[in-house]
Simulated assay, not measured.
Amino acid sequence: MLKEFREFALKGNVVDLAIGVIIGAAFSQIVQSIVSDLFMPMIAWITRGGVDFSNYFLPLSGDVTATSLEAARAQGAVIAYGSFITAAINFLIVAWVLFLVVKGINEVKRKAERNKPPEPAPEVTADVQLLTEIRDLLADRARPSV
């Protein structure tokens, strides 16, 4: 059983998947930094009010009077739609980057296909060559001579 598990775990697909998950986690941190450190400050500057999506929430009970999300969560139930907006921006950035990566890979594949030399004609075997000669001789006999 251990031998089967080791064979399964060391298959190329499983190892590739593990590498993809690890790279995805690192990429997630990069995207989070891009959103929180680059895009959100630009959005705040554009709106001229210093918009901070992280503290946007709707209280679900009258007991919530706090102005920050963390304090509001301590007071009662809230819908943190600002966090959702940030997550949606993260998703759009990841989707856009993955689109560009797939587009680039497809372009490289198309270039490789265009630059690929034509395949040589398949080698004709001796029996096919003999049959072709017989066919040609029979066709010549069938034609009337002029």
Results as ranks from 00 to 15, higher is better:
94 V>Y: 00
92 L>H: 09
71 A>W: 03
34 I>E: 01
129 Q>N: 10
38 L>Y: 05
130 L>W: 11
102 V>R: 15
18 A>C: 14
12 G>T: 09
20 G>H: 01
11 K>D: 15
29 Q>R: 12
56 Y>K: 14
60 L>V: 01
86 T>D: 07
63 D>E: 10
76 G>P: 01
20 G>T: 01
73 R>N: 00
109 K>L: 06
90 N>Q: 05
8 F>M: 10
141 R>Y: 14
99 F>Q: 11
137 L>H: 14
69 L>C: 02
77 A>T: 03
110 R>S: 08
33 S>F: 08
127 D>Y: 07
38 L>H: 07
53 F>C: 06
67 T>L: 07
6 R>F: 09
98 L>F: 13
73 R>E: 02
134 I>H: 03
132 T>W: 05
82 G>W: 04
22 I>P: 09
117 P>R: 01
137 L>S: 13
9 A>V: 03
141 R>H: 09
20 G>I: 00
119 E>I: 11
90 N>M: 02
111 K>S: 11
59 P>F: 02
140 D>Y: 10
53 F>H: 04
116 K>T: 07
76 G>H: 03
37 D>G: 04
37 D>R: 02
100 L>N: 11
21 V>G: 06
138 L>F: 12
91 F>G: 09
133 E>C: 10
81 Y>K: 03
2 L>R: 15
134 I>W: 04
31 V>P: 03
32 Q>P: 08
127 D>A: 09
120 P>Y: 05
76 G>N: 00
63 D>G: 09
6 R>L: 15
15 V>I: 13
3 K>Q: 15
96 W>L: 14
22 I>N: 10
68 S>E: 05
134 I>V: 15
12 G>P: 11
16 D>W: 10
45 W>V: 08
77 A>H: 01
119 E>M: 13
40 M>L: 11
46 I>D: 06
86 T>E: 15
33 S>G: 12
7 E>H: 11
79 I>K: 07
75 Q>L: 00
130 L>F: 15
89 I>L: 13
79 I>N: 10
32 Q>N: 10
112 A>L: 06
5 F>W: 14
65 T>L: 03
91 F>R: 09
58 L>C: 08
112 A>V: 02
137 L>T: 11
74 A>V: 01
118 P>Q: 03
96 W>D: 11
42 M>H: 09
3 K>F: 15
73 R>C: 04
28 S>R: 02
72 A>V: 02
64 V>H: 00
23 I>T: 02
98 L>G: 08
132 T>P: 04
120 P>R: 00
38 L>P: 03
4 E>H: 14
42 M>R: 12
57 F>W: 00
16 D>M: 14
62 G>S: 15
39 F>W: 11
97 V>T: 04
37 D>C: 01
